[in-house]
Design a protein around this nucleic acid. Structure first.
Ligand SMILES: NC(=O)c1ccc[n+]([C@@H]2O[C@H](COP(=O)([O-])OP(=O)(O)OC[C@H]3O[C@@H](n4cnc5c(N)ncnc54)[C@H](O)[C@@H]3O)[C@@H](O)[C@H]2O)c1
Ligand SMILES: NC(=O)c1ccc[n+]([C@@H]2O[C@H](COP(=O)([O-])OP(=O)(O)OC[C@H]3O[C@@H](n4cnc5c(N)ncnc54)[C@H](O)[C@@H]3O)[C@@H](O)[C@H]2O)c1
Lengths: 239, 239
DNA sequence: ACGCTTTTGTGAACGGATGCACAAAGTCAC
DNA sequence: GTGACTTTGTGCATCCGTTCACAAAAGCGT
């Protein structure tokens, strides 16, 4: 049992998911030359309530000053450290189709603690081609990437039909964190984390709410609105 | 108060978020010629526990048959209806850069109840150009799109600096559902839904867990593991 | 030095989501 | 027709996350 006050492990998943947004908000403030910020201001910049922000930050330690607020640089550093962004994580993108091309060209990786170390594809016609300054390689280099570059994160941008196969290859090579853009469920061992980004799902959730709004408007024409309007600030469909 | 048994409004957000995955699993089963499925099998295909699946489905009505399971086609139809996918939703993509190009070329829209009716950009150099068979138009056509095509959903694929401006234009034109790919918080009126897809956030969450795994492995070398291994099937980082 | 103001950090109440376990409801073999 | 078997739908307990509200802590002005 360590007595270190910051050694509190077990940050809730919901909090971890919001830390990147706080970090982004802090970066924006720092760029505007702001050095100190209250929980109210930062929460507003990040699109959450101040109580939630404070509780989230309390899980990392006590970095605020009562009556004043948080020092922007220091808090940004603490969040970066907690997220493991004080080092650069090597990332490989697999599947250089439409989406893979866009991802490879995306500058948002480098600015946020990630480094694209490889672009992989199965298509012989793509191999050797250069995309965004990186040569496309075959899947066989995976073991080497893990051993020599410390590859830790794989991004799957292949069609759904190939995704599980690619996933298995990543896991076999030792990659334990996977970001999946293919619309399918991946089966992985317990120690591997998978996160999914799914455009269709997001659109379908929007469609559900859109339909509800359309029906509500229709209903309101002939009768009193079935549901009272909920006054709510800055409504965003919760996840 | 209608007595219609299917008129149960107020499906939990968490359930709505999973319906698209169930629908996809059902579509896959139907393609393989399977006509009937149990909650256990469908749950496994969708990557959830069967009890959760059954509770989710119970919110839409009672479409299963005890002792047998669910009829694939019928359940798929019911979920589609609930999500509002029995009609095609017109979608506009704003910002035809790297990401916008990939999205425009993406076939996943049409197969899932969406129709790209317009591609918009501010850049005069792109206007009039054809991408995936659709001509790029200026932002000024927004009002027309809403009035004549019934545009309901806008996809923002511009840089973060322009996103709020584009969002305001969409809202002013009457669009009330927005999918945002730019890494920033959008401020909208209460009746507008915004969902965000954020690559960096997802990677940063993976980095957090990756770091924990690295630290745990390190700690295990010199001492007994600090945390007991949790046996958990098919672990996916929860959201 | 001291009291006033501001803002944090957190205990406690609340609400929603998850997982368990089983009665009810249906099928199917005979 | 009947009984054994399968699988759904759901009540209940539990867990996790959010929100409220305030005492404690720090700065600041006088
Ligand atoms: N394009 C988009 O905007 C978009 C949006 C959301 C989701 N997606 C999803 O992302 C994935 C990729 O989409 P895309 O439009 O880029 O597809 P694509 O067909 O243009 O590209 C797929 C690439 O993957 C490669 N590939 C196929 N099997 C492989 C294997 N086993 N190993 C290595 N490489 C392999 C192919 O050679 C091809 O280059 C799909 O699952 C799609 O559903 C795409
Ligand atoms: N490229 C990727 O893989 C990727 C991944 C994740 C997130 N994103 C995000 O998606 C967004 C777009 O990325 P990108 O790489 O395609 O950028 P990009 O710079 O290639 O393209 C942006 C496009 O938006 C247009 N635009 C700018 N301001 C506009 C305005 N006010 N109205 C209409 N159009 C406008 C520009 O003309 C340009 O064509 C960015 O916010 C980026 O952070 C991109």
């Amino acid at each position: 049992m360590s007595a270190d006050p910051s050694a509190r492990r077990g940050i809730p998943d919901a909090t971890v998911a919001r830390l990147p947004e706080y970090l982004r908000a802090l970066t924006g403030l720092a760029e505007r030359g702001i050095t100190s910020v209250s929980s109210e201001e930062l929460a507003s910049a990040a699109g959450v309530r101040s109580a939630k922000l404070r509780k989230d930050l309390s899980h990392l330690g006590s970095y605020g000053v009562r009556g004043v607020g948080y020092e922007v640089d220091h808090l940004a550093y603490q969040i970066s450290r907690e997220l493991g962004l004080t080092q650069d994580w090597p990332v490989a993108i697999i599947g250089m189709g439409n989406l893979g091309h866009a991802l490879a060209a995306y500058s948002g990786f480098a600015t946020r603690g990630f480094r694209v170390v490889a672009l992989l594809d199965q298509d012989a016609g793509l191999l050797g081609q250069e995309i965004a300054g990186i040569t496309v390689q075959p899947m066989t280099v995976l073991d080497e990437l893990v051993a020599e570059q410390g590859l830790a994160i794989g991004v799957i941008a292949t069609p759904a039909a190939s995704a599980q196969e690619v996933c298995d290859a990543l896991v076999a090579a030792g990659v334990r964190s996977i970001l999946n853009f293919a619309p399918c469920v991946l089966v992985v061992p317990d120690d591997v984390d998978v996160r999914k980004v799914d455009l269709s799902t997001e659109l379908q959730i929007l469609a559900f709410h859109e339909q509800r709004k359309a029906l509500a408007a229709e209903g309101a024409l002939g009768a009193v609105a079935l549901e009272p309007v909920k006054p709510e600030l800055n409504r965003v469909v919760g996840r």
